[in-house]
Amino acid sequence: MSSSVADAAPERAPSGAPPAPRALSRTLLSLVRREFWEHRALWVAPAVVAALMVLGALFASVKYRAPHADLSGDQGPWNGMTLFAVMQGFVSSPLSLVTGIVLLFYLLDCLYAERKDRSILFFKSLPVSDGLTVLSKLLVALVIAPLGVYALGLLASLALTGIWQVNAVLGRLPAIPGWDLGGWLQAELALLLCLVVAALWYAPCAAYLLVVSAWARRNPFLWLLLPPVVAQILERVAFGTHYIASFIAYRLFGVWPILFSHVRLGHGRAFALGSGLAQLDLKAVLTDVDLWLGLAAAAGFVFAAIRLRRYRDDT
């Protein structure tokens, strides 16, 4: 191996025994890096949102002061963990929303753009299977991007806590109450489990987007929207029902009521952050038949997307 690199003699002996293929992990890493090179919105958009929120907090803390704000919730006084969790929630909501939108367009575009600009002919000239290529995109959308955004949210909330701390020292905000490390770790773990549940529940949606992306000859966005909209209208006109709309809504948001079935908000009850883990009904989610039906559908969609990338010949 090493000699072939240093060997500058013109009489190289190519194509002897075929060299071993690149390790799967190295190939996969290259494929994932490629996604972030091509689709820069994947990291730029969340980074900009997080930066804006931190800047906004910085600006607000200079402009306003509330040294005697009441730091007590429905379940008694807040501790530092609660404050941190509130900040993380404050940062995470817009971050998740933006990431969701970015991922939607990413998945719709990733197998379409390479056909549109014909760069698929370059990527297909390399020894990377269509299966691994499609899986790398799913991995980016369901695991790597969400984990990255989670880390970004954590960093941003640390920055917000830092800003609060400085203001507390300056007497502009009340001091942060004592920390509850165990409770904080539980809240973080609960958030990570939500990411796992989201990855499992949204896998069929993501895989379906990949199929549309691999299939559409032009305008995948239209191909995503048009069929369900037309089907809904036809259903409404023909039967006066709205099963399709409810099905889509269920597939988009249906898992969260199951996951949070223990949580009762309102009437003096608040989400008890200190016991974040106990609040999640993970068992109900993992035994939910619709989750597994969705995963089976996802497997089918992934298979379809791989076949489409392998055999669709429109370059």
């Binding site: 075929p18 060299p19 071993a20 293929p21 690149r22 190295r26 190939t27 890493l29 290259s30 494929l31 890096r33 490629r34 090179w37 091509e38 390479e114 600009d117 014909r118 760069s119 698929i120 002919l121 370059f122 000239s125 390399l126 020894p127 990377v128 370059t315």
Partner: peptide, 25 residues
């Protein structure tokens, strides 16, 4: 080389080397 114009337009030269190095034995 299927055509002259198939290298993706967003790719940097260094990234092209990184990528091919990462996948081609």
């Amino acid at each position: 080389i299927a055509d002259v114009a198939v290298l993706p337009r967003w790719l940097r030269v260094r990234q092209a080397l990184d990528f091919v190095d990462g996948v081609h034995p």
